[in-house]
Amino acid sequence: MSVIVRLPTPLRPMAGGKDEVFIDGATVRDVIEKLDAAHAGLGARILDDGGELRRFVNLYLNEEDVRGLDGLETAVKTGDVLSVIPAIAGGR
């Protein structure tokens, strides 16, 4: 099942400059692992050393934050859009 993964600007150089890539997978975790296999290093930008979603990274499956679904175990289907959305912050 092919999912569209949309990447934020800083990660695009790791995917050959593309803003979106097509990845097969059955769950969100599966897609991220295959994304890393296709574009080495991208997985580590999204998941921590324990294989969990990094605190400052959000994943939206279509319009839903996967943290509000089944997290990384959320099932995906062909045509779904998985967006990597960093949670930026700052302060003086």
């Binding site: 934020p8 800083p10 150089p13 580590a44 960093p86 949670a87 930026i88 700052g90 003086r92």
Partner: peptide, 29 residues
């Protein structure tokens, strides 16, 4: 406060959060 880019701004920029602060600038703040 004045206009500046604080250390907090830098450490919480998207480039830093994603571990890519060394690549060409991705955004303007």
């Amino acid at each position: 406060h004045d206009v500046y880019f604080s250390e907090t701004d830098l450490r919480n920029s998207e480039e830093y959060l994603l571990g890519e602060p060394w690549l060409p600038p991705a955004y303007a703040y």
